[in-house]
Computed example of a mutant assay.
Amino acid sequence: MSPPSITNIPRELLDIITDDIDKPRDILSLALSCRRLKDLLIPDILKKLEYATIIAPFEYHHLWDHLSSHPELACHVRVLSIAPDADPSTSPHVFDYTLGLAPDDVGAGFIAAIISTISHVVKSMCVTLASLLFGVIDDEKDRDALSGFGSLISILLKIGVYLLTCRVASHRRRNSQVLDLPNLTHLHIDAGSSGRGGPVDSAAVDVWKRFLLGCPKLKCLSIFHSRFTPHNSAVESFDAILDIVHWRYLKKLDLWPSIYSSSTFNKFLARHPSIEWLDLSNYSGPQFPVGSFQHLHYLSGDLSAIRAIAPSKPPSLRTIFYLCHIDNSFGPQVDEVVRAFKSMEPTLRCVELVGQGRPFWGDYTDGLATRIHARLPRLRIDLHSSFNLYPGEDE
């Protein structure tokens, strides 16, 4: 009997091993070790490259259904960004827009496939023609004009295919069932932060649930929505999600504060002591008690976040990215900010100041930095509004 080896283990066990490898080049190195592993793993490398990072809008229901019905492909997704203005070229190229189409959708899917094929043919012809003309054209200006014309044709083709595929992909809305993404580590949801999305309601949160409940290995989560006040049903629905999720590997969290209640958020943070990076602004809840953030290294937020976090005395906090007003309205609040920084000074090493809002009387972040540096000379102060730098004593 031959000794156990990675070359003769069952394929199911080999899949479990390779699913934990994040970098395709590491799988490639393993595949090149012998012929059998090459035959088994080279297809996996292609799948990982295609599905490792996906950027698509919510309306690509066929893509989500495609992943739901193909868990062997969904397990390769590591980064998922859902944005309304996503470029369709960031979706997997092997994804077939005709998959899952209803009988009345087949015509639209067939047209999309034909248009996509024609666009690739025309683009190839343009490239071939340009290469031939480059060989006979000596004038550099004519070459630049030809190159610009080819780029214009390529852009127009992309826009046409984008509009058509968006229409086909969103042709029929599907049920918001949970999408199983067992190896997803980074999830970004943009529900219309530019203002186009409108108010968030329970129906929108129900769509978020499809992605939030199926990613047990999540490390980074960020959710943005429009600046409109969400409907009360949205807060209740999102609270219901926060009450049941538990991401044991979560390290970075960025949530818009108006979509959850403070009590639910505090309980959520208590269940996730591993958070190292927190983005918190416009916070209206109670202050956090001592011991709430045992592993917090980086805090980004405004005065409301500083007020809430400072009493907890995070033992590992080293950097604060402070969103301050850039006019003279912050004057009465300077002492409060300095006291908060001083209470965290045993571990705090750097404060990054960035202006927020439009300056009417001028940018006063320099003055704020000067007053902080006078009281806390050990702190390093970086100004994102100018080139000034206030190094700490240990720099």
Rank of each mutant, 00 (worst) to 15 (best):
residue 2 S to G: 11
residue 4 P to N: 05
residue 8 N to L: 12
residue 11 R to E: 12
residue 12 E to I: 06
residue 16 I to T: 09
residue 18 T to R: 00
residue 20 D to T: 09
residue 23 K to D: 11
residue 30 L to C: 03
residue 30 L to H: 02
residue 31 A to W: 07
residue 33 S to L: 12
residue 35 R to Q: 14
residue 35 R to I: 06
residue 36 R to G: 05
residue 39 D to N: 09
residue 42 I to T: 02
residue 44 D to L: 10
residue 47 K to W: 07
residue 48 K to A: 00
residue 57 P to F: 03
residue 61 H to E: 01
residue 69 S to R: 04
residue 72 E to C: 01
residue 72 E to F: 02
residue 94 V to W: 04
residue 96 D to K: 01
residue 117 T to R: 15
residue 118 I to K: 11
residue 118 I to T: 10
residue 129 L to E: 08
residue 143 R to Q: 13
residue 144 D to M: 12
residue 146 L to D: 08
residue 151 S to C: 06
residue 152 L to S: 08
residue 157 L to E: 05
residue 157 L to H: 04
residue 160 G to I: 08
residue 162 Y to I: 06
residue 164 L to T: 03
residue 168 V to K: 01
residue 188 H to I: 08
residue 201 D to M: 04
residue 202 S to H: 02
residue 207 V to W: 12
residue 210 R to P: 01
residue 211 F to Q: 03
residue 214 G to W: 02
residue 215 C to S: 15
residue 216 P to W: 02
residue 219 K to E: 14
residue 220 C to H: 13
residue 220 C to G: 05
residue 224 F to N: 12
residue 225 H to I: 07
residue 232 N to K: 11
residue 232 N to E: 15
residue 234 A to G: 00
residue 246 H to T: 10
residue 248 R to G: 02
residue 250 L to Y: 04
residue 252 K to W: 13
residue 262 S to E: 08
residue 271 R to W: 00
residue 273 P to I: 03
residue 273 P to N: 03
residue 276 E to L: 01
residue 278 L to T: 06
residue 280 L to V: 05
residue 285 G to I: 06
residue 286 P to V: 01
residue 287 Q to M: 12
residue 288 F to Q: 04
residue 291 G to S: 04
residue 292 S to A: 15
residue 294 Q to C: 06
residue 296 L to C: 04
residue 307 R to N: 10
residue 307 R to V: 06
residue 308 A to M: 02
residue 312 S to V: 02
residue 313 K to T: 14
residue 318 R to N: 09
residue 321 F to M: 08
residue 323 L to D: 09
residue 324 C to R: 07
residue 328 N to K: 12
residue 328 N to L: 10
residue 328 N to R: 11
residue 330 F to V: 12
residue 334 V to Q: 13
residue 341 F to V: 11
residue 344 M to W: 08
residue 346 P to H: 10
residue 346 P to M: 05
residue 348 L to T: 08
residue 350 C to Q: 11
residue 350 C to D: 07
residue 359 P to H: 03
residue 359 P to L: 05
residue 368 L to G: 12
residue 370 T to V: 09
residue 375 R to S: 15
residue 378 R to G: 14
residue 380 R to I: 15
residue 382 D to K: 13
residue 386 S to Y: 02
residue 393 E to T: 15
